[in-house]
Nucleic acid binder design. Structure first.
Lengths: 361, 361
DNA sequence: CTGAAAGCGCTTACAG
DNA sequence: CTGAAAGCGCTTACAG
């Protein structure tokens, strides 16, 4: 990569070193190696290694000489080589759906903080909700020999991970369970959260309640729909299937679904939305309507309290989800044994007004 | 890491292979290597390498035998070893302020997409606005020998990067320029954006306009303040220093600053906020006040259009920022030469109501 | 306290 | 078309 050194910064490799063997042409833009440091300091390779890694058993004088050579050459240990010998890469992979989705920001950050506390770096990637891309990304991370994986699955068959897990790659799934394999998983109680949210609407007098959720192949979408149906059943309300809509969460589809439920002679008087993206779109749809429609959304959204009415939500703690998963991962790496566990985090109903609107007449 | 293989998944390494030399005890949970594949297929190491990498010059029959051995052993190439030999790691580092900040989500995703198009993985980390942590993270990435770095700097002195850049690590700074070194940088036109936003408030009759921004050691905070002063000067308005407040962007500090400007006999009639976090807090403060106060914020925020009034903003394109930076990075890696460049992306004023309020009497 | 040799799992450069 | 040898930059295991 020497050809990219387009800066005026001068090369650190001194030309005037008589100890310079002169036969090094590494690919790393001529970076000095431990061998170079050893030659310049007049010591063995292992002594340099000791100094670089702060191992004991080096006289202060020798250490000083080595340190001087390190500084003079601008040496920085190649962790990529170190990793090959040591076996652990001190890095973990995080595969999620979309780095740009605000739901995953706090989750990523939480995973990062735990990784940092364990001295590991985070390699991050988006599956874009594409099972093939998920697999491609996960296997690329395995090829890099990450110590562990935190995966928010897009696909529903993770048997491709079996050899990797057997080979020792610690793995924790988050937000959705893996398919066809047994592994640690950290979830939000989607069923319970949705049931509570819908029950809240029923308690405020609603009976014709719509549900708009994500695609049916996504676990959380199904679970939240189950929660919706359970709450309706508990109240003895028969669900008209015209009130239920699952599908992609892009604004056009969601807006169409909402409009459909609100049209006709017998429109819904309330809507339960299955995630943050759906909620945002439905809020927009409802803002353009004269008659108030009650709304409870799964996931909290920024500024929800400042809208009129404020948006009542079933909040999940994305950061806690990430933290819990990452901590389980490092517990696996620290040698914890036992069967895979399933952790379910509770949700929290936050009432702000939209969920407490009475049914329109 | 064999101790973490707690799943019922069976080991892929067959025990019945007579070609098995039996003396391999790798640290990678006994992962098969090319050597193992070669032994099983009865071919040389180089032939395995050819098949794995899709190189030409292998008879279909040999290829088939090798492929069978690969499948039987569950071999996956160790890219970590490959990297050591090849020189390029096909990974880039992205150091930003906070993965959880919604501003950085689209930026990260855009960098990731460009990296993906170039076959590279993304290693991601938050500096938490701490210069030491930024340096620690950047140098850890250099030790891993990432091919390049995209850095949103927290610190103001990046001379520590000189040896790395000289050694060939491609580097692009984003959102804020580096300190004391010359390198590619992609910025938003903070000065122009702020000037336009403040001029918009002046055009709507305001003269007593507050400015609440980030800490003064942050480049964008200073630039936006400069834009504010320029707009005021252009209109012949003398700035009362009580209208200006720079500091940390946590809600308490920002709310206090806003309250102070709005108190007293001669309060400001409009506020210009320096970034998304400041805007969110000021919207909250203003929502609790009887008299309308005009507001223009730097950075767009979700649902801004649904508040009453809608929040007028000076929007920057975070995704475009990330894309531009990553593309420059890969152009460097592809051997582009020339002096470092500074790219400045324009902002866009989006009027939604809050910025068009007249001064309160 | 110090260092030479072997090896991590690949690719490179070369010879058959 | 195929493969043995050397080497990437470190650490490990061992001997002085």
């Amino acid at each position: 990569m020497a050809e990219t050194a387009r800066t005026p910064v001068s090369r650190r490799r001194p030309q005037d070193d008589p100890a310079d063997p002169g036969d090094r042409r590494s690919r790393y833009g001529n970076r000095p190696t431990m061998k170079d440091v050893a030659a310049r300091a007049g010591v063995g390779l292992k002594t340099v290694s000791r100094v670089v890694n702060g191992e004991p058993g080096v006289t202060p004088d020798t250490e000083r000489r080595v340190q001087e050579a390190i500084d003079a050459l601008g040496f920085r240990r190649n962790d990529s080589a170190r990793v090959l010998r040591k076996g652990r890469t001190a890095s973990i992979g995080l595969v999620l759906e979309d780095l740009a989705d605000p739901f995953y920001g706090p989750l990523s950050r939480a995973v990062e903080e735990v990784a940092r506390a364990h001295g590991a770096l985070l390699i991050n990637g988006s599956s874009a909700e594409d099972p093939e891309r998920e697999q491609e990304l996960v296997l690329a991370l395995c090829a890099r020999r990450v110590d562990g994986l935190v995966v928010i699955p897009a696909g529903d068959d993770h048997r491709y991970l079996e050899p990797e897990i057997a080979a020792g790659v610690a793995t924790v799934f988050v937000d959705r369970p893996p398919g066809h394999i047994d592994a640690d998983v950290v979830l939000t109680d989607s069923f319970g959260g949705a049931r509570d949210g819908v029950a809240h609407l029923i308690a405020h007098g609603h009976r014709r309640i719509g549900f708009i959720g994500d695609q049916p192949r996504i676990h959380t979408a199904i679970e939240r729909l189950r929660g919706y149906r359970a709450a309706m059943a508990d109240a003895g309300i028969e669900v008209d299937e015209a009130w239920v809509s699952l599908g992609p969460t892009h604004p056009e589809r969601v807006a169409r679904a909402a409009e459909a439920m609100l049209a006709g002679p017998d429109p819904v008087t309330a809507i339960f939305t299955g995630n943050n993206r759906v909620t945002v779109t439905v809020v927009r749809v409802l803002a353009g309507r004269p008659r108030p429609v009650a709304l409870v959304g799964f996931d909290d959204i920024e500024l929800a309290d400042l809208l009129s009415p404020g948006v009542t939500v079933v909040a999940q703690d994305a950061a806690q989800l990430g933290r819990t998963a990452a901590e389980r991962l490092f517990r696996q790496l620290d040698g914890a044994s036992g069967p895979p566990e399933r952790v379910e985090l509770p949700t929290r109903l936050i009432t702000r007004g939209s969920g407490e609107l009475p049914p329109a007449r």
